[in-house]
Simulated scan of single mutants.
Amino acid sequence: MSTDVSNLPLGSRVVVRWRLEVPDPATGATLTDAVGTLVRRDAATVSVETSRGEVTIARDRITAAKELPPKPSRRGAAHLALSVEDLQRVMIPSWGAVERATLGDWALRASAGYTQRGNSVVPVGSPARPLLNAVTEVETWYAARGLPAKFALAGPQGFDPAGDPLGAVLLTRGYTAGSRTLALTAARETVAAADPGGPALTVSRELGPEWLEAHRGTRATVPGATEAVLLDSPRVLFGSITPGGGLSQQLGLRAADAAGTAPIALARLGIGAGWAGLGAVWTDPAYRGRGLAAHLTAGLAARLRQEDIALLHLQVEHDNDAALRLYRRLGFDVHSSYVYLTAPLP
């Protein structure tokens, strides 16, 4: 845990450890924890709403603090115990955006068109106004940025958007449903233990030029916006596998390829809300089927021990059978799903 509370989002669930002014007379303890919602923060103090009421703590007494996942809403494994809405909240900070805004509880993101996640609304909670008014405000916000309004509407696996109150409104306004996506979750130790083995990994907090250049070859990117999105999470880890270090024999690389520095496998972890979100996973087509994606994913999961993060999530389109087989082998389970509802073009 860090002593810095400046980057902990207001409204997040946190634990703050701090020094008592005098030892506890019953136990002699000199430290105590406040667990709850971070409600206020200024230069001198932070305030946490706990189950016993609000606690205000002087910053110079804080010895450690970190963000926690939302409370479980059901029994079972920790990675499956969140509600659908809470998992959506957890996923918001793991993928970046150039611009963020809120409408009540809804989270709006715009990123010049780079990725659907970076240019969509997460409509969880209440927008704090009538539904039709909220939809109109969202449409206006995106139109001002030259983008169509897009909602990431979540529900159980296989849910029908027409059966959701917001989904029904959007469909009657001509929105189209597409890119049905599964949200998968797993425990860190399960994924790390499933490592099939392989070459050395490079893991960095920096977005290096080689990583970025390889990523540009995997999808359409937007200069400036792409870098901003990839770096926007509270904490980020960029993982890669490059030729060399004995990899040439393992993969049968040609001499020219073995001498290169361009990554042949990539992945990104965005850390926020007490979870890590896996994304931007890619393997050079020439080296697929050799376990590189599994090895890189498991290696990044193991690295999360240093980050004090125990749970992972990722998103896969529902018909991407190859990816689903990979992640199930690594110990991921389907938690829920979402579908993008996109406004018709003018």
Rank of each mutant, 00 (worst) to 15 (best):
M1F: 15
S2I: 06
D4W: 07
P9D: 10
G11M: 15
R13T: 12
E21F: 01
T32H: 03
T32E: 15
T32D: 04
L38N: 01
D42M: 08
A43T: 04
E54C: 12
E54R: 13
A65C: 01
A65W: 00
E85Q: 09
D86Y: 02
M91W: 06
I92S: 10
S94V: 13
T102K: 14
A107M: 14
R109M: 13
Y114A: 14
Y114M: 13
Q116K: 09
G118E: 05
V121I: 08
V124G: 05
A128M: 13
R129H: 11
L132P: 00
E137K: 10
Y142P: 04
A143N: 02
G146F: 09
K150H: 07
A152P: 02
G155M: 15
D160K: 13
G163S: 13
A168S: 12
A168G: 11
G174T: 14
S179P: 02
R188C: 03
R188D: 04
A192S: 12
G197C: 05
G197Q: 01
P209V: 00
A220P: 00
A220R: 05
V222D: 02
G224M: 01
E227G: 11
A228Y: 07
L230Y: 01
L231I: 04
D232E: 10
P234G: 10
G239P: 02
S240G: 15
I241C: 03
Q249E: 14
Q249N: 07
A258S: 04
G260K: 12
A267E: 13
G272V: 00
A273I: 07
L278R: 01
W282Q: 00
T283F: 04
Y287H: 12
H295N: 09
L296F: 07
A298C: 06
L304K: 00
R305F: 09
D308L: 14
L311G: 05
H318Y: 11
D321H: 08
F332I: 10
V334R: 02
Y340R: 02
T342K: 05
T342E: 12
